[in-house]
């Protein structure tokens, strides 16, 4: 009888412990860590400098300095839009907009680790790295982290590559969208930046069919395309496909009050040919919405205090009484 009683106590205790540990683990804060993996066909790239910017809240509202930009966020579930948006925001970031919240160099395994990340949409940009005679250039990416995301997130970097002795060429192409052409300026000025310094400036207009090509550019530099003085009433998006920068100005009636911003840059990814390596896109595109169907748990763990105390008190009393009874029995 006594043996059965002890066994029951152990079982009850185990159940309570299990319940408590699960409650505690549920209530633990959800800080996320991010591992960026820059691994190519030729192996991991060491020493590439990755910067992490918090650019948007999880609902897609631009943050801080990025909120001042005339950038249309668009559909965050559309991978093509995401790629252009990442490229455009990375350009602004390269041009000095916003401060990275963290910066890390990739280690010998090609990994760069970031920790203590809270919910939000992050922009990841990276500098190029070299293996042998090949330069690997990471593409910028957007990453959405919500409290539903895994605690540890791995992102495989997409990249392009070219030979370090190769000369590269870029074409810039101007596209107007959703406008009546009455508000459209006769020309726009576009700058080519070499590692964030202005290398060349050209005017695009109908006379040159809104395009321009730069040849014989050194592959050792990072090249950005910049639209200077974004026309009032337009948003800008810069996409890079192969070696063509498409600078799209989208007419938006709701932006009548916005003023002309200085500069827009485009993340270059100085590429002449896309990498043949296929890489899993970052989780950005797969996670939707920051809200769940449940309201956030905003309570401290007070109720286990009562459960623990009352259970403890009961067990203590039961133990005390049964010990007294067994002592009495032994005396008799």
């Amino acid at each position: 009888m006594k043996h059965h009683f002890s066994k029951s106590l152990i079982v009850i205790f185990s159940i309570i412990c299990l319940l408590c540990s699960s409650v505690v683990s549920f209530a633990k804060s959800q800080a996320h860590s991010l591992k960026i993996k820059f691994i190519t066909d030729a192996g991991p790239v060491e020493g590439a400098n990755f910067k992490l910017y918090q650019v948007m809240s999880t609902d897609g509202t631009l943050y801080g300095d990025f909120a001042d930009l005339q950038v249309e966020v668009g559909d965050l579930t559309d991978s093509e839009n995401l790629s252009s948006l990442a490229s455009t925001l990375a350009s602004y970031a390269a041009g000095g907009t916003g401060e990275p919240i963290a910066e890390k160099k990739s280690d010998a395994l090609g990994h760069a680790d970031f920790s203590n990340l809270t919910s939000g949409i992050y922009l990841v940009t990276g500098s190029s790295g070299k293996i042998g005679n090949t330069i690997y250039i990471p593409k910028p990416a957007l990453l959405r982290i919500t409290e539903l995301s895994d605690e540890s997130i791995d992102v495989n970097v997409k990249y392009t590559m070219l030979s370090d002795i190769q000369k590269v060429s870029y074409t810039v192409k101007k596209v107007w969208e959703n406008d009546e052409s009455t508000a459209r300026p006769d020309s726009v000025t576009v700058q080519l930046l070499q590692d964030s310094e202005v290398y060349d400036e050209v005017t695009l207009s109908s006379s040159n069919d809104w395009t321009h090509k730069w040849d014989d550019l050194s592959a050792d530099h990072k090249w950005n395309v910049v639209e200077k003085d974004i026309p009032t009433g337009y948003t800008v998006m810069v996409a890079l496909d192969e070696n063509i920068f498409t600078v799209t100005n989208h007419w938006t009636t709701s932006s009548e009050t916005t003023e002309t911003t200085d500069i827009t840059t485009t993340e270059p990814s100085t590429t002449t040919e896309p990498s043949t390596t296929t890489i899993t896109p970052p989780p950005t595109t797969t996670i939707t919405g920051s809200k769940t169907d449940k309201l956030p748990q905003t309570g401290q763990l007070w109720y286990p205090v009562c459960i623990l105390f009352i259970s403890g008190l009961l067990l203590f009393l039961i133990g005390f009484v049964s010990k007294r009874l067994s002592d009495d029995n032994e005396k008799e």
Binding site: F13, L301, G312, L314, K323
Partner: peptide
């Protein structure tokens, strides 16, 4: 008795943690 005592200590620890 021991288990009961431990649970009460756990309750006290949780209270301190919350505070």
């Amino acid at each position: 008795m021991l288990v009961g005592g431990l649970l009460m200590v756990a309750a006290a620890c949780l209270t301190i943690y919350n505070l």
